[in-house]
């Protein structure tokens, strides 16, 4: 077992892990941060996306020991300080960008990374950025719309409620 220490959502976190322990497992099982989900084992679905040192990564495809010393951000740390939804989260609710909610944490974390890189993405930008995030419920329409809305763009011309 190896001791790892990291900052998770701004707070110090540590634990003893095996070499094979994945960051996603450490977050879920050791820290109880179960908002990071595991939806596949081939690094494709993106339900586990978190930020490590400010970059989106798949927490199921990174060893916990490799996050030693890193700053990790998960879905649990995304809301505003007063507990209200942040701009992206609020846009997902306003535009019905989630149904079962399982892919949602990864979607929100990917969206946050996209908007940091590209504050006014086009529809195509958003769709391509989500190559590594699979949603089975929404058909993506409202996810794309929500992310564009979160970037401050007018999405009223996009069809539907």
């Amino acid at each position: 077992m190896t001791q790892v220490k990291m900052t998770v959502n701004g707070k110090d976190a540590s634990g003893d892990v095996e070499g094979r322990t994945l960051l996603a497992q450490f977050l879920r099982d050791d820290l109880g941060l179960t908002g990071t989900h595991i939806g596949c084992d081939t690094s494709q679905c993106g339900a586990c996306v978190v930020h490590v040192n400010g970059e989106a990564v798949k927490a199921c495809t990174m060893l916990a020991v490799e996050a030693d010393g890193a700053e990790v951000a998960t879905i649990e740390g995304q809301a505003n300080a007063d507990g209200s939804l942040n701009v992206i989260q609020q846009a997902f609710q306003d535009h019905h960008g989630l149904q079962c909610g399982f892919c949602t944490p990864g979607m929100v974390m990917s969206a946050a990374a996209l908007l940091k890189e590209n504050p006014k993405p086009t529809e195509a930008d958003v769709r391509h950025y989500l190559d590594g995030n699979i949603c089975r419920c929404t058909g993506y329409h409202n996810i794309v719309k929500a992310i564009m809305a979160a970037s401050g763009q007018d999405v009223s011309a996009i069809a539907a409620e």
Binding site: S43, V49, K58, M62, L130, G132, N133
Partner: peptide, 9 residues
């Protein structure tokens, strides 16, 4: 290559 999260690792 792959997707953004994969490209970051």
């Amino acid at each position: 290559i792959g997707d953004p999260a994969v490209r970051n690792r």
